[in-house]
């Protein structure tokens, strides 16, 4: 279970990105995070695995305090939290398989990993994960030779390699077309339903939220505006989240 209490992030002492945000996520939940660009969605997700240091507040996960963990404890926590990014964040000059294998870096012998040695079992697992997302035949290509949709599947496979208890997905489908978007969302849904992985996913399109999420929270200028079932978002709440000028699309 993930519990976020009074989380605040101020960049460089000036820009308020998260303003006293508190909520809880149950194990096995599919939580959508919605809000305008710049509303603090990415900051929130990155604070959870401390890629960004929160200014104040607490994050507690499985009775471990993420906010006060040391760097080493943080590695131990991070390897159980997979992350999927909007721009895939693959190492474009490395092979697909290396990108997927890098999901195991928190587990394997650090010294040997420096000379690119992975246990055979991990290599097999990587191929298996690539099979699950349907691109096992691309394993030995360079990552930048793949199309956008394929690259995001590599991103999902990398997160799956971590054997995660939770996946943070930062607008995973924002740079994909609607068909690809659904296929990526389906992989996440499958992980959520079949393996009980908790998923926190920031999304732009409300139809995707309605289709895949169990619950949604909404941020506006760093403040938590909404926390509930997606179907509860009526026109009034919608305007609260997206501003008075906004119109529904899709």
């Amino acid at each position: 279970m993930l519990s976020i209490q009074n989380l605040t992030k101020i960049y460089d002492g000036k820009v308020l990105a998260l303003d006293n945000v508190s909520f809880e996520v149950n194990k096995g939940e599919f939580l959508a995070i919605i809000g305008l660009s710049g509303s603090g969605k990415s900051t929130l997700l990155r604070c959870i695995n401390r890629l960004i240091e929160p200014t104040s507040g607490q994050i507690i996960w499985n009775n471990l305090s993420i906010t006060t963990s040391s760097q080493e404890e943080m590695r131990f926590i991070r390897r159980k939290i997979g992350m999927v990014f909007q721009h895939f964040n693959l190492v474009s000059r490395s092979k697909v398989i290396t990108n997927v294998l890098s999901g195991r870096l928190g587990y394997i012998n650090p010294t040997l990993s420096l000379i690119n040695r992975f246990p055979q079992s991990d290599v097999e697992l990587a191929i298996k994960q690539l099979e699950r997302v349907g691109i096992a035949d691309q394993a030995y290509k360079r990552a930048d030779e793949l199309s956008g949709g394929q690259q995001q599947r590599v991103g999902v496979a990398r997160a799956m390699m971590q054997d995660p208890e939770m996946i943070l997905a930062d607008e995973p489908v924002a740079s994909l077309d609607p068909v690809l978007a659904h296929s990526i969302m389906q992989y996440l849904e499958k992980l959520n339903k079949e393996e009980g992985v908790t998923i926190l996913c920031s999304l732009h399109f409300l139809d995707l939220v309605h289709e895949y999420a169990d619950r949604a929270i909404a941020l506006n200028q760093g403040k938590l505006m909404f926390d509930g079932v997606p179907t509860e978002i009526d026109d009034k709440k919608f305007k609260n989240i997206y501003g008075q000028e906004a119109k529904r699309v899709g």
Partner: peptide, 13 residues
């Protein structure tokens, strides 16, 4: 910076 944060997020040192 993207790949950097992706690899850090996996728990790499």
């Amino acid at each position: 910076p993207g790949p950097l944060e992706a690899v850090r997020a996996t728990g790499a040192n």
